[in-house]
């Protein structure tokens, strides 16, 4: 893993979480009613996004969680 200074790393997580929150609703598909397999495309986007969110959250528990709260002082 690339060496990062702590504030860059924190900013990185902050940005990641902001993107995770903002993208849960596919704003760019506003008004679209395109269907894939009987379900709207925008719903598929959301389903995929939530799975990605779980992966990102899992990564955060390994690499970020203890760094910011409750861990040993770095």
């Amino acid at each position: 893993m690339i060496q990062m200074n702590p504030s860059m790393r924190a900013a990185g997580w902050l940005l990641t979480f902001a993107v995770v929150v903002a993208g849960a609703v596919p704003w760019f598909l506003w008004g679209s009613s395109q269907l894939i397999g009987g379900l709207p495309l925008w719903l598929w986007w959301h389903i995929g996004w939530m799975i990605v969110a779980t992966a990102i959250f899992a990564a955060f528990t390994r690499h970020g969680w203890d760094r910011y709260l409750g861990g040993i002082d770095a």
């Binding site: 389903i47 939530m50 799975i51 969110a53 779980t54 959250f57 899992a58 955060f60 528990t61």
Partner: peptide
Amino acid sequence: LKRSFALWPVLVL
């Protein structure tokens, strides 16, 4: 707490 946090979006889905 960590495991619950990570599993949350999928469970909600």
